[in-house]
Design a protein around this nucleic acid. Structure first.
Lengths: 250, 250
DNA sequence: GACTGAAAATGATTGACTATGACCGAAAAT
DNA sequence: ATTTTCGGTCATAGTCAATCATTTTCAGTC
């Protein structure tokens, strides 16, 4: 049986049953545990199901978030981002006043957040929506919306940021480089990131491995201005810096 | 049984019964007390229920949300609302600067909008999202989000409204009454509606038949401050007013 | 078309890890 | 004061990822 055939069958079974164990799958597909496990790992990385201890469950989305998630689906380095996001989410503690930047990395972070007694400020429409639905306290910045990222930008947002003093801030980035700092392709968004970061007591940048060493067009912070959270680096050039956290890839 | 399966079952039971004891759950799921306790702790952390001594209770909806659920209300008088929304949408012309209030009536209006050279300002997250996805220019007000309606409220939004001068504004309402004007159950939202309407050159209120003659707790405008758009009235008491438009059903 | 070596997929094995249920002293409710 | 519930600990059973041997696949060669 072809791998893709199994993938299709497993996906179908999971969609239909909502959850399934490894043992069940071995019986239904007449193949070994090892293979099923490998398949589940692969499908999980492809975001076609959620691998859990003992088996897998379907990806269920609360219907309003469906199309928003579609864009995120064909995202790169999903697994890495989720690990980084989990680590970042655990940094939020009781009574924190948190800034959440727009972007896919911070989106995964929203899914992991547990702290309900914190207050969140964001410029991302989808984040605000997810957060409010999960019962968190949320402030949204005001201003024009950028179509491609559905993030609030503009002078008004910059102005309102000035009055906040965040205990922690979490940012996405397109490039991390020791010399060129944190960079992103859009100037309007860079301005927001820069301003927001200045208002943060602790600033964290979520950077999966594809961002390391990259340089994009607009700098929003120096490398030493924030703590970079990334997965284990194979490159040693950054190891000597103490503002970089390496999360172990689960 | 997979942990997620148990989570789902427990959540369902709690939702349905509103409260449940640990003992009941051990019997219903045929598992040990320890496991149930661990599950409840996990689910509590996930915000899927509230763990209490002896068991768990469902997450109760915001009491202020008593003005009927967004989802439920959206389904009332759908056909009427759509007709009204279509009429309202056609009022938007090239170069208009439009304020769009939160609510289900204006939501249907978003679906009907055709004018792309207008600029829209709204306090509703979902409207902003729909509009931007349809390629319109959108400004979102900033501030805290009200959970039940997912609308921006608060002083910040009021402040930023002051500087706008809308050519047209479209509002939802809970009650229309000649003597008591336009009313709505939530004070914070009433303030926003009031301020926004003051900035409008032309203000329209979308009111399906269930709203006519109703009086809710907070007034946000006098009856003569806006043009009410409704379906054909069978009651003649309002006919003499010239600020009421009756759209023919269908 | 058959042979061959490299690459990929599979299944078995294993030590490490995780979830579970029983137990028990502490905490809370009555 | 008594009973119930709680949360931590522990042994056990179940599950996992990594490794390795075997089989399958496939391109290149004769």
């Amino acid at each position: 049986m072809l791998a893709e055939e199994r993938f299709a069958k497993i996906t179908e079974i999971v969609e239909q049953k909502k959850s399934v164990t490894v043992l069940e799958l071995t019986q239904l597909l007449g193949t070994s545990e090892s293979t099923i496990r490998r398949d589940l790992t692969a499908l999980h990385k492809m975001n076609r199901l959620i691998k859990v201890h003992g088996g897998a469950t379907a990806i269920e989305m609360d219907y309003a978030t469906k199309d928003a998630d579609f864009a995120v689906r064909k995202d790169m380095n999903v697994e890495e981002k989720k690990v980084i996001a989990k680590y970042a989410a655990d940094l939020v503690k009781n009574n924190d006043f948190v800034y959440l930047d727009a972007g896919s990395s911070t989106d995964y972070m929203v899914d992991c957040l547990e702290e309900r007694d914190a207050v969140y400020v964001t410029n991302a429409i989808s984040h605000a929506q997810k957060l409010i639905r999960r019962g968190f306290k949320v402030y949204l910045l005001g201003g024009p919306i950028k179509k491609s990222t559905e993030a609030i930008i503009g002078v008004e947002a910059l102005k309102s940021l000035e009055k906040y003093n965040f205990t922690k801030g979490f940012f996405g980035t397109n490039g991390v480089d020791i010399k060129h700092g944190f960079t992103t392709p859009d100037n309007a968004e860079a301005l927001i990131k820069k301003q927001a970061m200045e208002q943060c007591h602790e600033a964290y940048v979520l950077a999966d491995s594809s961002k390391i060493g990259q340089i994009s067009s607009v700098k929003f912070a120096e490398f030493e201005d924030a703590v970079a959270i990334t997965v284990s680096l194979h490159d040693d050039t950054m190891k000597k810096y103490n503002n970089i956290v390496e999360v172990n890839e689960k």
